[in-house]
Computed example of a mutant assay.
Amino acid sequence: MSDVLVTLPDAMRGELKEPMGPLFTDAESLLSEIDGPLLAVGDVVTYHLERAGTVPDVAVVDGLTKREEVEDRVAEGVARLGGETREVHVENPAGGLSRELVEALREAIVDPEPTVLVVEGEEDLVALPAIVAAPLGASVVYGQPNEGMVHAEVTDESKAAMRDLLSRMDGDSEALFEILDAG
């Protein structure tokens, strides 16, 4: 596994249970609220956006939902993006953020070509650095298990909140912020 920058301490897990924005169960309704770059975190979210005819600027997938392999229809929907996007494979551990993933995320955000980051491991924490690295006005959409899709708008306030969360994780948050702030 590549160099791990930060890991989520057990004591902080509860802080990540609350949605970081409004919940949607319908991709069309969600998309009507979005104006600006779109970052999708999770296979099921990416699948629903693809089904609604939208290619996210950045999609982060790991082939899993709730720690189980995604259904074939979800995997096929994500795979359909392959013809329209650049695909980058990275490693990332459960409960952490690797240097490889964070660097690839940063590059994908600034790349004008849509990118799918295929994670070997787990992508559960990617919404946090995505909000920090994305431009103001962007949208980060991630799945809330058994509830729907969360629309987190990238604002000065959401960036500050994510920086606070990431800075309290175990590891080298300074190195993490150096990568996220580059560009």
Rank of each mutant, 00 (worst) to 15 (best):
S2V: 02
D3I: 01
V6Y: 01
L8N: 04
A11M: 02
M12G: 00
G14D: 15
G21V: 02
T25R: 09
S32A: 13
D35M: 01
L38Y: 07
L38T: 10
L39T: 14
A40P: 04
V41F: 00
V44N: 02
T46V: 00
H48G: 00
L49W: 04
R51T: 06
V55G: 03
V60Q: 01
V61L: 08
D62F: 10
D62L: 04
T65C: 13
T65K: 06
V70M: 07
E71N: 07
D72V: 14
R73H: 14
R73K: 10
A79Q: 15
R80A: 15
R80I: 13
E84C: 05
E87K: 14
V90Q: 03
N92I: 13
A94V: 11
S98Y: 03
S98D: 09
E100A: 12
E100S: 14
L101S: 12
E103Q: 14
A104S: 15
A108T: 05
T115W: 05
V116M: 01
L117C: 00
A133D: 06
A134P: 00
A134D: 10
G137L: 15
G137Q: 07
G137T: 11
Y142V: 13
P145H: 13
V150E: 06
E153C: 07
E157S: 14
R163I: 15
D170I: 05
D170L: 02
D170E: 15
S173P: 06
F177Q: 05
E178L: 13
E178Y: 12
E178R: 15
